[in-house]
Amino acid sequence: MLKLNNLSKFYRTDEVETVALNAVNIDIEQGEFVAIMGPSGCGKSTLLNVIGMLDQPSEGDYFFMDENVASYGEQKLSQIRKQNIGFIFQNFNLIDELSVAENIELALLYHDISAKERRQRVEHIMDKVGIAHRAKHRPSQLSGGQQQRVAVARAVVGDQSLILADEPTGNLDSVHGQEVMEMLQSLNNEGTTIVMVTHSAAHADYARRTINLFDGYVVTQSMRAAS
């Protein structure tokens, strides 16, 4: 599904050049569930941003669905992104002024989908993640776990094939954290590719493969035996 080839990312300030990703080679297949781990500042989030096309690599190639997108402009990336990729953030990133249903609908708003179909799909996904009874509430009226469920719903409502999750459980207690992980796993079982950054070894265990980053290098990649 995606392939990073000697991909590097530098940040330059006036005097210092910081290497966030150093000649990274990663290959992720369709339907995989990959966890990215590593200490703070190792480049996890940068990697996720590059994969999510929110950030462009400084060097190297990035093949997404066999297309080298490394040199694509914002307009084209945006197009690919909204068709294929859903995002889940540690801080949920829901819009406070919009209701739960509207937050989810947002992901469809920028696609060419009729209002009627949008409503149907939003209702369907809300049922699926068990948030339908909160449809008219504001994000600030929900618990953290509920907010993250809304975020998950938003990430997949557009039938995205790849979900990028940046510490999706970081702000949640263990019970709610587990809930979200189970939701991701069931999505994965239905065929969605998931790439997740996490600090929690326990949550990383939900993934089939774990990539360990340290100072911008891929240190190890370990596979978990199929259960």
Binding site: G52, L54, Q75, S78, Q79, R81, K82, Q83, F87, N93, L94, I95, L106, A107, L109, Y110, H111, R154
Partner: peptide, 8 residues
């Protein structure tokens, strides 16, 4: 958020 979700 809107941009991530694909707004032009």
């Amino acid at each position: 958020i809107r941009k991530v979700l694909g707004a032009r």
